[in-house]
C-alpha cells in the first residue's frame, strides 16, 4: 500500500473541566488511503464525531489536542495556525454534517452559496464559477441543475439538500471528505441514494471519505475498511468484510450480533449488558469494555490492552495479545 493520505497517530483529546481534564479521545490511530472509504462506527459518546472534528481542526476550547499527530500526505496538520488551516479546510479536507438544513444558509440561493465557496478557493469569474456550480449540482445528481441553481434551500427535499451539501463540499476539489452521519436524517430509500453517490464520488474522483456513523449497515455497504470506536479508543480496525463477519474484539462482535437483520426473526437478539462508561479523567488503566465483556480475564481490569497488528487488521484486546508476565494483578 502506498503512503496513506491521512494518518492519525496516537491522538489524544482532552476537555478541561472544573474538576480537571476529561479524556475524550485516547490513543486513536488509523490511516485512510487515497480513494478509500473508511467507516468509523461506534455508539453515541464513543468519540467518532470528535475524531472528525479533530482532523478538521475544529476542536474548540475547553477541548484540545494534547498529544499525537494528524498527518495529511505526510505533513502534520494538527498544530497549524488558523490561517494555514484555512488553506487545508476546504481545498484539501471538506466536511459534511448530519442535518443538511442547518448546513445551508436559508437566505441565499444554493447557487449563491456554491459560487461564493468556489470563488473563495479558486480565482474564477462569477460566470465561470456559476458554470462550475451547475456542473457540480449535475454531478451530485440534482435534476435540471441549470434551473435548480437558483432555488432556495427550502425548495429542496431532504435528500436533495444533502446532495447540495455534498456539492458544496466538492467545490474546492478536496482530497478527503469527512462525512459525519450524512444519511442519519434521511429516509431509507433516500439514504440508499446518498450512499451510492458517495461511493461513486470516491471511485470516480479518487476521493477519500471518512464516513462517521452509528449505523453498521451503512458502513457495511459503503466502506472499504472500518474502525470501531468505544469510549474514546479505536478497539478494532480492518477490512469491512472481515470485521462484519468475523470481528476480533468482543465489543465489535457484540455490536454486529445486536443488529437485527431482515432475514429471520431471531428468538432473541444478542445483547451487551450495561452501557458505555462516561469520560474518565485520565487514561484508563484497564480495558474500558471489561465491565460489559463476557470474555474478560485478569489483565482486562488492570492494564489497558495495546493495539495489536494482525495482518491487515488491528485490535486492542488482551484475547489477541500475549499478556506480559507478572502484569496481571
Amino acid at each position: 500500500m502506498s503512503a496513506p493520505l491521512l494518518s492519525v497517530r496516537k491522538l489524544r483529546v482532552e476537555f478541561a473541566t472544573r474538576k480537571g481534564p476529561l479524556v475524550a479521545l485516547d490513543d486513536v490511530s488509523f490511516d485512510i488511503a487515497r480513494g478509500e472509504v473508511l467507516g468509523v462506527v461506534g455508539e453515541s459518546g464513543a468519540g467518532k464525531s470528535l475524531t472528525g472534528l479533530a482532523i478538521m481542526g475544529l476542536i474548540d476550547p475547553p477541548g484540545r489536542i494534547v498529544s499525537g499527530e494528524i498527518l495529511l500526505d505526510g505533513e502534520r496538520i494538527d498544530h497549524l495556525s488558523e490561517d494555514r488551516m484555512r488553506l487545508i479546510r476546504g481545498p484539501r479536507i471538506a466536511m459534511i454534517f448530519q442535518d443538511p438544513l442547518t448546513s445551508l444558509d436559508p437566505l441565499f440561493t444554493v447557487g449563491d452559496q456554491l459560487v461564493e465557496t468556489i470563488r473563495a478557493h479558486q480565482p474564477l469569474s462569477a460566470q465561470a464559477a456559476r458554470q462550475k456550480a451547475i456542473g457540480l449540482l449535475g454531478e451530485v445528481g440534482i435534476p435540471a441543475p441549470e434551473q435548480r441553481v437558483d432555488s432556495w434551500p427550502h425548495e429542496f427535499s431532504g435528500g436533495m439538500r444533502q446532495r447540495v451539501v455534498i456539492a458544496l463540499a466538492m467545490c474546492a476539489e478536496p482530497e478527503l471528505i469527512v462525512a459525519d452521519e450524512p444519511t442519519t436524517a434521511l429516509d431509507v430509500s433516500v439514504q440508499a441514494q446518498i450512499i451510492r453517490l458517495l461511493k461513486r464520488l470516491a471511485r470516480e474522483r479518487g476521493l477519500s471519505v471518512m464516513l462517521v456513523t452509528h449505523d453498521m449497515g451503512v458502513i457495511a455497504e459503503t466502506a472499504d475498511r472500518v474502525a470501531v470506536m468505544y469510549a474514546g479508543r479505536v478497539v478494532e480496525t480492518g477490512p469491512v468484510r472481515e470485521v462484519v463477519h468475523a470481528a476480533l474484539h468482543p465489543y465489535a462482535q457484540g455490536l454486529m450480533a445486536a443488529i437485527p437483520t431482515l432475514e429471520t426473526r431471531a428468538v432473541r437478539l444478542a445483547q451487551i449488558p450495561g452501557s458505555m462508561p462516561r469520560l474518565a479523567p485520565r487514561t484508563r488503566p484497564y480495558c474500558a469494555f471489561h465491565t460489559r465483556c463476557d470474555k474478560r480475564f485478569e489483565p482486562c481490569s488492570s492494564i489497558a490492552p495495546p493495539v495489536t497488528r494482525m495482518g491487515g487488521r488491528e485490535v486492542a484486546c488482551w484475547l489477541h495479545e500475549p499478556v506480559p508476565a507478572g502484569a496481571a494483578r
Binding site: 429516509d187 449505523d215 449497515g217 455497504e221 459503503t222 462484519v244 437483520t261
Partner: peptide, 18 residues
C-alpha cells in the same frame, strides 16, 4: 434499500425520488 450487514461489497440501484 435497507443497508444490511450482508451487503458488504455489493452494489445496488436505489429507487429514485422521495
Amino acid at each position: 434499500s435497507v443497508p444490511d450487514l450482508s451487503m458488504v461489497g455489493k452494489d445496488r440501484t436505489p429507487v429514485a425520488g422521495e
